[in-house]
Write a protein that binds this DNA or RNA. Sequence first.
DNA 1: GTCTATAACCAGATAGAC
DNA 2: GTCTATCTGGTTATAGAC
Lengths: 210, 210
Amino acid sequence: MNQKQDGRSPSTRERILDVSLRLFSEQGYDKTSLREVAENVGVTKAALYYHFPSKESVLSALLEQAHVLGAHGVIFFPTAEIARDPGRLAAFAIRAIDTVLSQRSVFLLMERNRAAIAALPLPDQDHGDLHRQMEERWSALLRDSAIPLRQRVRFASALGAVMATAMGSLRGLGDAGLPALRQELALAVMDILEIPASSRPPLQESIGES
Amino acid sequence: MNQKQDGRSPSTRERILDVSLRLFSEQGYDKTSLREVAENVGVTKAALYYHFPSKESVLSALLEQAHVLGAHGVIFFPTAEIARDPGRLAAFAIRAIDTVLSQRSVFLLMERNRAAIAALPLPDQDHGDLHRQMEERWSALLRDSAIPLRQRVRFASALGAVMATAMGSLRGLGDAGLPALRQELALAVMDILEIPASSRPPLQESIGES
DNA sequence: GTCTATAACCAGATAGAC
DNA sequence: GTCTATCTGGTTATAGAC
């Protein structure tokens, strides 16, 4: 479940992240105590503090991990330039869909704990924090009045569609299998973004993860 | 801001709800203490407990209020039957858009505090709880394998699009004015749901609220 | 690298006076 | 309807032994 797969069995740190991801998603970040995490990992509360300096840092680590693993943290930074070119926009959208679907357990965590994540302290000066960078890029794009309102609404809608469908895949929508879901989602997003047939990329490729 | 507008100035109960809505949305439900709410209202913590039996009941009250005000709590219950008829589906979608946009401050609260809301105890046996009923209806629709996957993905996408756009309207997307935003969103949703031109309703009507 | 023990704190909630 | 005062319990986090 957690990456870094050598043959080795997962380190304590990795097990903490796995358990945290599960509990934070199921019960919510705030309602999950470190004592509870520790019990499920099979260590004591204090042991957690050896691996992470604070509860918040566990949440941060989960977000970072997902963004780094998900296509190297680059594909989530849409720009106005990309948005102007239907072909590039379509390719961007497909990559975003694959990233969200393959990392959907972490995106579920994100969607269910937006408030807690927003309240996260900034990690010591502009270092890292891919998550916030990504949010700011999207925000800038949506408020960029140089882009026609119609297109901005389409961007927001596409993002919402991807997130909602990926979340649905964890609650019953996914019964038909991930590849089929991916295919239908990609088509829906192409419609939302009004990508002309000539600019639509072929849809092969595969997906992984939990 | 809070409904029930006779000429009267808002009751303490109403002011508690207004302040809670603001703070819960800005900082998150779990990170907002009742002491903080009380201070902003201008009363003491204990006074809150006269009006509400618990912190959770404040959150519940906010959700109920929105669903009741928003088109009488009915329009959010999509059924497989409605989904089969393009005309009815389109009309349903438009009403949903208007409800979410007019109550968007509460929907922001919902989106940012999904975990806390999911953890809310059920209000004493099947009474009320429009919020959970609505979530279950949507969930049932998305997992209903009698409906083609393609259409279910479209439903999920449409819902996501409406929510994302409404949230965007509170963060810069709304600069062009709500009516224009509503118009573009409605068009996008018609595309997502693949409503044929002949079944698309005309788009007049207006919006209100904060 | 993991433990025991405990510090320090603050939350939600209640009792009862006014 | 609002207050003061207090209780109870759980939380993050730390110090220091092993």
